[in-house]
Design a protein around this nucleic acid. Structure first.
Length: 188
DNA sequence: GATAAAATACCATTTACGTCA
DNA sequence: TATGACGTAAATGGTATTTTA
């Protein structure tokens, strides 16, 4: 069933000052700054907050809504880039690990079929290296701070997931996993 | 209580505009 | 000045969830 597109589009048009087609305006620095501030507090807005913020910014509620949508999309994109970079590093590390293990295997095989050494200096297999970083840090828990664009840790992500989820009225339950600056401020 | 329709929120994608090198 | 690249505001079309009759 489809109603969202109609309602959201119509709402946008209804809010328009004139009935013309889209008129793209760049937001002022002050408007962007306040929007960013609010986004850092919460990546979603309930209708009351949206209207209040729009009034404060002298914008239409639809513009505020669109801004938050686009901002969430940008954050998600950044997060994807970080995840991608992380996986690339994982791949490189695993490739290197694989090479190392192959070499070790060859060494062990060579020892097995070689005659015993004359002295007691038996071969000691190289000690196991410390667990690589990718084993300690699941990719899904990496998060980006929207303000400083740096990667946050698993603890922040868990806190965000627990703390987030304010929404009034019907519609999709908020399951977003964006960065919460209040759980991250120390890192920034 | 079950159900279909309506309402709402959100997302992915696309379009179009403003800016800058 | 013209232009292409890029960032982003806005539009569009879709899904998921909640409310309501």
């Amino acid at each position: 069933m489809w109603a969202g597109g109609v309602s959201s589009t119509a709402a946008g048009r209804d809010d328009d000052d004139d009935g013309s087609t889209r008129k793209k305006l760049r937001l002022t620095k002050e408007q962007s700054a306040l929007l960013e501030d609010r986004f850092r507090e919460h990546s979603t807005l309930n209708p009351k907050q949206k209207v209040a913020l729009a009034k404060q910014l002298n914008l239409r509620p639809r513009q505020v809504e669109v801004w938050f949508q686009n901002r969430r999309a940008r954050t998600k994109l950044k997060q994807t880039e970080v995840d991608c970079e992380f996986l690339k590093r994982c791949c490189e590390t695993l490739t290197e690990e694989n090479r190392r293990l192959q070499r070790e295997l060859q060494e062990l095989r060579a020892l097995k079929f070689a005659p015993p050494p004359p002295s007691s200096a038996a071969h000691q297999p190289s000690p196991a290296p410390p667990a690589p970083f990718y084993m300690q840090l699941p990719a899904a828990t990496l998060t980006i701070c929207p303000s400083c664009e740096r990667v946050g840790g698993p603890a922040s992500a868990a806190k965000v997931a627990a703390a987030d989820g304010t929404k009034a009225g019907p519609g999709r339950t908020t399951t977003h996993h964006f960065f919460n600056p209040f759980t991250h401020s120390a890192a920034c």
